[in-house]
Simulated assay, not measured.
Amino acid sequence: MSKATQYTGYQSYSYLTPGVDYETFELSDELDRVPEYDLGLDAEQLARTRRLVEDNIVVSLHDHPQVFPRDVGKIREYIRTGREHTGYAGLARSGMTAVFDNLMDGTACVTSKCGWKWDDILYDIGMRLCDLAHQDFVRVVHGLDDIRAAHENGQVGLVLCLEASTPIENEVDRIDLLYGFGVRQMGIAYSESNTLGSGLKEKRDGGLTAFGRRAVARMNKLGMAIDVSHSGDQTCLDVFEASEKPVLITHAGARAVWPTPRMMPDDVLKACAETGGVLGLEAAPHTSLSKQHPRHSLESVMDHFTYCVELMGIEHVAFGPDTLYGDHVGLHKLFAANLGVHDAHVGPDYEEVPYVAGLENPTECFHNIVGWLVKHGYSDEEIQLVVGGNVVRVLEQIW
């Protein structure tokens, strides 16, 4: 099920000649790559779920709506071309009004195996914007008016984001440049420390640096949202203290539910809420597990949801599923060193899954999330808040 859209079938880079102007790869299926998740909803619940998705602004605080090669072994080769394909067909069926698109993040290896290089990030953004400029279904979001217009016009708004500020190095003016290129949200650090602060895989968290405080102040002045999802605990707390505007945790969960560094401790979650910020619930493979549901699925993620709603208040909880079109587990293995996967996932033993049932890709996530909330007795008003209303409210203060 999906809301009516103005999507007309455009595919990435179709204004060029494949095999002549750019190298081609056999890509993963955007639609129906895995079996449909059965929530066991009756006809009335299905109708209510559809209505809630269609009638409301639905925002993902964190996703990667790109299509990856079917052959995992070709992903690095694909990325080095600088032409990741956007999943337009999948987005048209997603029910989302807007998605915070985190681009290549730590996999931006166009010129380097290590990622996060300034030139690679700009190459990625420029190529993506060129593709977006050749169609009119997905619109680049520069402010809340674009999100509202996308909802009215049957479009999907794409918010350009970076998961870490690492590419700015020690140049605060690069934040202005990124804002000029359309970036509207940026993380402090991604696992590894940088000039702003400590990443979550570091054994000693030095907190936000003096330069980091300058960067936070600049992002506040520009109206760029700040994310601390991959930052160390003390760095998170320092950012909350330094920022004059609410801060986001775009994709994480509760460490009390699943004790790994990738999840956030209670004091960080509560401090985020106290700034007026919002948490987006994470669903990337083998992250937001739970003791009740150690085999990663929608149910595991919703265990984090119920805990965080109780801890933070429902007005501070949303969803940032962190999904993509392709083999996410295979991509994690391929880029484990770049992304700090092993360091971030230290904790209880878990059963590896081929994908997260119910939250495998951007197309299915919010239909299943809303369906789960309907099935478990949440009101229309509560559902509206967590699927988009909370994000819109906080962006009114930040942007």
Rank of each mutant, 00 (worst) to 15 (best):
T235V: 12
G207M: 08
V239G: 02
L222A: 14
G223V: 13
A242D: 12
K221C: 13
M224P: 02
D238Y: 12
P265Y: 03
K201Q: 14
T195E: 15
G232H: 00
L222C: 11
D238E: 13
M224I: 15
S193M: 06
G206Q: 11
G223H: 09
S231P: 14
P246W: 02
P246C: 05
D238M: 14
E244I: 00
L222M: 14
A225N: 04
L248H: 13
R262H: 03
L248E: 00
A225K: 04
T250F: 01
T209Y: 10
N194K: 04
R204E: 13
L196E: 01
F240N: 01
L208D: 01
L208M: 02
L208S: 08
G223Q: 13
E244K: 08
G206V: 04
W258P: 10
K203M: 10
L208K: 12
R262M: 06
S229L: 06
V239W: 03
A254G: 11
R213F: 02
G197C: 04
G232M: 04
K221G: 15
R213Q: 15
M219P: 13
K203N: 13
G212C: 07
L200G: 00
P265V: 08
L222K: 09
T250L: 12
Q234C: 08
D227V: 11
L248Q: 06
L208A: 10
A215M: 12
N194P: 11
A215I: 07
T195Q: 15
A217H: 12
T260Y: 08
R262C: 09
V239S: 01
R213G: 14
D267Y: 12
D227Q: 05
I249M: 13
A256T: 09
H251T: 09
M219H: 10
S198C: 08
G232I: 12
R218W: 13
R255F: 01
I226Q: 07
R262D: 09
A189K: 12
S191A: 05
P265F: 02
A242P: 06
P246F: 04
P246I: 02
D267T: 07
P246H: 10
G199D: 10
M264V: 00
D227H: 03
Q234R: 15
R214A: 13
K221N: 15
L200D: 05
T250E: 04
A254D: 11
P265L: 04
H230A: 01
T235A: 07
D266C: 06
E244A: 15
S231Y: 01
V228L: 04
S231M: 05
